[in-house]
Each structure stands twice: as structure tokens, then as C-alpha cells.
């Protein structure tokens, strides 16, 4: 007995079927961008099934199905995240204040991304002046002036590998008029140069290796806000004097000693840098050598390693950087001529 030739057109018996259990799998099939990088764009997925059955006289017959091959297209997805642990603190008027962002290619193919920044946003206290977007050229995640390259749109758009990420910095100047505690945000956005649009939008041939590029759930672009907070410190000086006369009293007579106390108190938030206290010796008095103290510790009169100096007409003490909420106290003595 002859069997029908197996060349019967195979497609003739592939029914247009309704796949069973369609609802059961719905939850897993809508994942979309949830897969970090996924199968690389251009990868072939090939499937061949086999069937076996008993042969007359024992043994097993094998039939191999046709092979179906799919090429994985490129998914375009990008996310931007602000990576500073909290508000970036800066003084009013300070330049070069750095916000750090991570731009992540959530797609399955390497791609270039264009970057943009916005400072004029609502919901904050002021607008910083963005001076540059900088790429983390040396890849250490930290802004290195002079090493990391300033971003120029269309010229050095960063290329990010599938599932890779890169650090991008926004540099801003905070306005002088901003008050202590004021907050402001600046936004970094990144967009795939392969295309953006509604999820599912397809760009034929735009993907790695010539496959189609398909916009993912992020729309092919992402953005994040970073925050600045102004720290404004102010210093107040309070000067007091006490007199000790040679007779054990407190009368201002020739020969009496006046002890001047200068208290410098820094208020607000942050700190003041290069703070220096100087006070001229009043006329009619003579500085008593070796009497400068800072917070109770004696300082020398010479311009040397310690902070105190007697210039011949004034006492000067270099306090350096003083944090807000701190009081530094300088004393010196003069004799009434």
C-alpha cells in the first residue's frame, strides 16, 4: 500500500486557529520595557519541532517540522535618573554647581542619545542658570573639571550600549538673590536618535544590523529633575570690652588694660569661607604683645603658621571656613596710654 505523498501543501492544513488559554497568558505577554536589555537586536530566534511515531516492524519514525526564524527587532527605551543622594547644596551666586544624572539605555541595541536641559520649571523657588551639560568622559561617575567633556548637541551625543548607562552632569550657577533654604530644580532629558514617539512606533531599518527599531514604553525618551538648595550664611560681629585698672578696679585710667572680645557668629545654613577678623588698635592705646587668643588658645603676633597676627596697627585673625551655627571668639589686650 502506498501512502499519500507527504508533499501535500503544508500550509493547507495549518488552520487559522484560536489559541487556547489566551487569557491565561495575558499577564505575562505585556511585559514590554520591563526586560532590562533583553535579547540583542538582530538576534535570530529559530524553532524546529520534531514528531516521532512507531514504525512497522519496530523502530521510530521521525518527522521534522519546517524551521521558523524570527529576527529580534530593536527596542528603543531610555530612562534618566537623578543620582545625587539629596539636594545639591550651594551658596547663592555660586557657579559650577553639579547635578549628576544616570542615562540608561533600556533597549536591546546600542544607540546614540541626544541630551537637553531645562531650568525654567515651575514648582520651585528660583531658576538656576545652567551653564553646561557635561559627559562623564572618564566614566568614574564624578564630575572632573577639565577632564570630563562639555556636551555639544549633535557633536558628541553619547553612545550607550544595550542595558548600559552613562553619567551626565548639569552645571549651574545659583542666583545671588536666592535666599537661604530656597530650592530649585533642573531637568535633564535624553532622546534616542533612532527615533521617539508613541510606544509601538516603528522605524524600518533603523535598528542595529538593519532590523526595525520599535519605540518601547518609554517613548524613546526620558527625563529627570535634580534639585539644588541654597545655603546662605551670614556673619555677625559683636565687640565687647572690659577694663582692669592698676588698682584692681575697672576705671579707664592711664595704665589700665582693656580686653577686647570679638565674637564672630555665623548664621543661616552652610558655611562662610575665608572668614577673617581684624580690628584696629584704638588711638591712645598700645597693644600688649602676645595677648591674642582664639577660642581661649593663645596665638603669636608674628605672621606665621598660626592664625593670629599683629600688623603694627591692628590685630588680625584668620578663621578660614566657619560653619553656620558656630561662634569664633578672638580676644586681645591694649594698655591705655
Amino acid at each position: 500500500m502506498r501512502y499519500q505523498a507527504s508533499g501535500a501543501k503544508s500550509s493547507a492544513f495549518v488552520k487559522k486557529t484560536v489559541v487556547p488559554a489566551i487569557a491565561a497568558a495575558a499577564a505575562v505577554s505585556l511585559g514590554g520595557a520591563a526586560h532590562a536589555s533583553g535579547t540583542p537586536a538582530g538576534t535570530a530566534i529559530s524553532n524546529t519541532a520534531t514528531a516521532t511515531y512507531d514504525l512497522p516492524g519496530g523502530g521510530t519514525g521521525t518527522v521534522t517540522s519546517n524551521t521558523v526564524t524570527l529576527k529580534v527587532d530593536e527596542l528603543i527605551d531610555v530612562t534618566v535618573a537623578w543620582k545625587d543622594p539629596g539636594d545639591v547644596l550651594g551658596a547663592a551666586g555660586a557657579a559650577g554647581q553639579v547635578l549628576s544624572f544616570t542615562v540608561t539605555n533600556g533597549g536591546n541595541g546600542s544607540g546614540q542619545f541626544s541630551l537637553a536641559s531645562v531650568a525654567a520649571l515651575g514648582g520651585d523657588d528660583f531658576d538656576p542658570t545652567i551653564t553646561a551639560i557635561v559627559l562623564d568622559t572618564n566614566g568614574n561617575g564624578v564630575y572632573d573639571p577639565g577632564v570630563d567633556t562639555v556636551y555639544v548637541p549633535g557633536t558628541n551625543d553619547p553612545t550607550i550600549a544595550a542595558d548600559g548607562s552613562t553619567t551626565v552632569f548639569i552645571l549651574s550657577t545659583l542666583p545671588l538673590g536666592a535666599n537661604d533654604g530656597n530650592r530649585a530644580r533642573a531637568q535633564l532629558s535624553a532622546a534616542s536618535k533612532k527615533g521617539t514617539g508613541a510606544p509601538g512606533t516603528t522605524f524600518a531599518g533603523a535598528g542595529t544590523g538593519g532590523v526595525a527599531a520599535v519605540v518601547g514604553l518609554t517613548g524613546g525618551k526620558g527625563q529627570a529633575d535634580g534639585w539644588y538648595k541654597v545655603q546662605k550664611a551670614a556673619v555677625a560681629f559683636v565687640k565687647t570690652a572690659s577694663v582692669t585698672d592698676p588698682f584692681g578696679g575697672a576705671t579707664q585710667v592711664p595704665g589700665a588694660t582693656i580686653t577686647y572680645t570679638l565674637a564672630a557668629t555665623v548664621s543661616g545654613t552652610g558655611s562662610l569661607a575665608n572668614l577673617k577678623v581684624s580690628d584696629a588698635i584704638p588711638s591712645g592705646t598700645t597693644y600688649k604683645p602676645g595677648t591674642i587668643t582664639l577660642d581661649g588658645t593663645a596665638l603669636s603676633d608674628a605672621a606665621d603658621a598660626d592664625a593670629g597676627t599683629f600688623t603694627g596697627s591692628a590685630v588680625a585673625v584668620t578663621l578660614g571656613t566657619v560653619a553656620s551655627g558656630t561662634t569664633r571668639t578672638v580676644t586681645f589686650k591694649v594698655k591705655i596710654n
Binding site: Y3, S6, A8, F13, A51, L55, V63, S65, N66
Partner: peptide
């Protein structure tokens, strides 16, 4: 017998 069964994926 062989060849009588068809499989299409």
C-alpha cells in the same frame, strides 16, 4: 510508515 506524518510549525 515513514513519510506519512506531517508537522508544520
Amino acid at each position: 510508515t515513514p513519510g506519512a506524518v506531517q508537522l508544520v510549525s
